[in-house]
C-alpha cells in the first residue's frame, strides 16, 4: 500500500465513515448505548431488552441488530463504534470477539491475523 497522501476520497472497503448521514440514522441507537455507561442503564436493558429499545425509539432494523448482537448490522443501522463498544463490553465481549464476528473468522484466526501484522 503506497503511504502517500491522496487527493481522492474513494470509499475505503469495509469501512463506514461516521458522518452526518450516519449520525442522523443512528441517533436513537447511539443514545441508548451511551446510557450503558451507567449501571442503572445496563440493568434496565438486561431486565427488559425490548422495552428499553422502545424507550429510546429504536427502529426495527436497530432492534433486530441489537437482538442478534450483530456488529455489522448495528453499524449499518447507524451505530457508532465508540458507543457500540459499551454494548459489546456490557455483554462481556472484547474487540477481538467483535473483530472476529465482523470478519467472519474465529477469534483465534482473528488474533493470528493481528499477530501477523507485526511481521
Amino acid at each position: 500500500m503506497p503511504l502517500q497522501p491522496s487527493p481522492t476520497k474513494d470509499p475505503i472497503p469495509g469501512t463506514v465513515i461516521f458522518d452526518g448521514a450516519m449520525a442522523m440514522r443512528g441517533y436513537a441507537l447511539n443514545k441508548m448505548c451511551y446510557s450503558f455507561n451507567e449501571e442503572a442503564g445496563r440493568a434496565a436493558f438486561l431486565a427488559d431488552e425490548d422495552g428499553y429499545c422502545d424507550r429510546f425509539g429504536l427502529n426495527e432494523a436497530q432492534k433486530a441488530a441489537i437482538k442478534a448482537r450483530n456488529a455489522l448490522d448495528l453499524i449499518a443501522a447507524g451505530g457508532n463504534i465508540y458507543y457500540l463498544a459499551k454494548f459489546i463490553g456490557m455483554l462481556g465481549l472484547n474487540v477481538q470477539d467483535v473483530g472476529a464476528q465482523q470478519t467472519g473468522m474465529t477469534v483465534e484466526e482473528f488474533k493470528a491475523k493481528l499477530q501477523a501484522a507485526g511481521h
Binding site: 503511504l3 474487540v95 465482523q102 501484522a117
Partner: peptide, 15 residues
C-alpha cells in the same frame, strides 16, 4: 487500528 467493519483488525506497520 480499526475496530469496526469488515476491515476490523487492520494494522499498517509500515505507516
Amino acid at each position: 487500528h480499526q475496530l469496526d467493519g469488515e476491515r476490523a483488525g487492520f494494522i499498517n506497520k509500515a505507516f
